[in-house]
Amino acid sequence: MQNNVLLEVNNLKTYFEMKKWGFVSIGHVRAVDNVSFNLKQGEALSVVGESGCGKTTLARTILGLYRPTSGDIVYDGKSINEFSKGEIKAYRAQLGYVQQDPYGALPPFMDVRRILAEPLIINGVKSRQEQEKLIERALTDLKMTPVEDFLPKFPHMLSGGQQQRIVIARAKILGPKLIVSDEPVSMLDASVRIEILQLMRQLQEEYDLAVIYITHDLSTVRYFSERILVMYGGKIVEQGPVQEFLDNPSHPYTQALLEATSDPDPKNAETFKKVPGGEPPSLLNPPPGCRFHPRCSYMIEGLCNREEPPDFIIKENHSAACWLYR
């Protein structure tokens, strides 16, 4: 079991220093604060949370775009902390990255052929033939056929769904074992979202890819991942297998998220949602204890607002950072 763990994140912290007048430090934004989890080869993990919860920073840290403040990321048995600048670059190339805004993620002045050739050129695929072969395969994998029709197109000539498929093709063209996708469909129309997600799912199964799927949309989670991880205020509040999670949401924040998600149902109009008010915590000065306690209706005075909750095991593989389960 241990040997097919692809990515191990241990006590990861990514802080950003906030400065006043350009040099006086006034504290740190704790975007990712003590996050630990594992990802197995071929597994799809959803990271769910609202904007500003640190999920995008987590993704970028895993991708090697930010250096962690402390903690460790072990990829394929090697710790990225020990990498030199050149090795970090090589490491980055081993992971695929799919971003939220497909149009912004593609250089507008390059055509599709060029866009897909760039990672190959940078990573030493020099032969023209080899490049053509890989580009063709990537596009075919994403059902962008006939390939010749798409190669000379510029991003603005493609629809949102097609742009996102190019982004995914680019992410997988180097044959990564892990793809990090940050809200890959949130800017797309409902009717194409599923198509993109299903394509990603197919790729994942075909190539035995591990996928980190970052989203704020809980309703897609069940269809496209095995495991889920909920972040709030820079921390993981709950993680577990998807079905177990949906059947038995444990952390009050997770429960609120589920409550807030609407399925299309005419009965919705008759009931009010039981969701907490308030705002997500500041990451510069997070509240002491559990970061959700100011909004939580189960708050235990003297505990939740004092001490940070550790992870409590709810069931096998399912844990929640909440004092309710002590």
């Binding site: 970028r60 805004d101 993620a105 990672p119 940078i122 680019r170």
Partner: peptide
Amino acid sequence: EAHYIEAARAYGAGDFR
């Protein structure tokens, strides 16, 4: 800050490139 630059960094593009 454009996303495509971030993407380029992610697939290993160097500073000069």
